[in-house]
Simulated assay, not measured.
Amino acid sequence: MKTNLVFNPFEKFSETSLAVAGASFILFSVLLFWFSGQSNDGIYHVTYQSGIQLVQAIIEALSYTFLPFLLLIFAGKMVNPKTRLVDILNATIVHRIPMTIGILLMQLPFLKKVTDAIIKAAQTNTLQQLSIATLWISTITSLVMLALLVYSIVLLINGFKTASHAKKPWHYILFALAIICSELIYRLGIYPFLSERFT
């Protein structure tokens, strides 16, 4: 079914195809973040950082890719000892694709203009002076970004399910714990270190 192709490509494509697609987008995201001056201050959160160095963008990409991978492979092995590393890795890198597309969309000139206007208004306490058009565009953009984030999580869940044959509620509790822990480790440990090291 086409819905399975969209929401669970791990059952339809070969592991090589998934790995190439995921790795290509990870590489593209590094260049995109470096070019656009954006940084991942969380596994699933992006912030502006003017003058971000290419090395930092690379280390961030490796961190927000392999940290969830390591915790998810641990969870996957607890669910099913036969869980393969390559399947969890593919799920981890492929699920970043929608978020990378979202960041690319944010580089559209009219969206950048809206974002800059909102940031400036927030800094000068003049949010009430923003135009209705700016607010509507901002709202729609936020909803699109939220949809892409949800889609990413769905891809990761389905990838984990396919890789480990997760079925029971406690399997998904392990999945959730792995993601929450990876977010906390990255946000509270890795990102502060990188931010201090490269600024």
Rank of each mutant, 00 (worst) to 15 (best):
S39Y: 09
N8F: 01
T199I: 15
L135Q: 08
Y44D: 14
I59N: 02
Q38S: 12
F110W: 11
S142P: 08
A176N: 02
A21G: 10
L177C: 11
S138A: 15
V86L: 13
V144D: 05
P9Q: 06
S182C: 00
A133L: 12
I157K: 05
N158C: 05
S138Q: 12
T134N: 01
S152R: 07
N8Q: 01
Y151Q: 05
R187C: 04
F10R: 03
E196K: 14
L149A: 07
I43L: 13
I118L: 06
T199A: 13
G76T: 01
I137S: 10
Q129E: 14
T199E: 11
K112P: 07
D87V: 03
S29P: 06
Q49Y: 07
Y64V: 12
T115I: 13
Q49P: 06
K120A: 13
A178Y: 03
L71G: 04
A163W: 07
I119A: 07
M1N: 11
V6P: 02
K82D: 15
R187S: 12
I119H: 09
A21H: 08
P169V: 02
I173K: 06
I179C: 09
L127V: 15
Y186P: 05
N40E: 13
L5D: 11
A163I: 12
N40I: 05
I137G: 09
D87S: 11
S164I: 00
A75Q: 00
F74Q: 07
A176F: 06
K82W: 04
I101M: 10
I103F: 07
S24T: 15
N8E: 01
A61F: 02
G42P: 04
P68I: 03
P192M: 06
L188G: 10
R197W: 12
I52K: 01
A117N: 08
L54V: 10
N90V: 12
G22Q: 06
Q129H: 13
L155C: 06
A117C: 05
P98K: 00
W136Y: 12
D41P: 08
G42D: 14
Y151D: 02
T92A: 03
D41N: 14
M145L: 15
L149V: 06
K82H: 13
G189D: 06
N4E: 15
T126A: 12
F74H: 07
N80E: 05
F7A: 01
V55K: 15
I140T: 10
Q53V: 13
V6S: 00
L188T: 12
K2Q: 14
L54M: 13
H165S: 15
L62R: 03
Q49I: 11
K168D: 11
T16H: 06
R84V: 07
I180P: 05
V150Q: 05
I26R: 10
P68L: 03
D87K: 11
S39D: 11
K2V: 15
A121W: 05
N90T: 11
F66I: 09
F175D: 08
T124K: 11
Q107Y: 07
F175C: 10
T100V: 15
T100P: 09
T134Y: 01
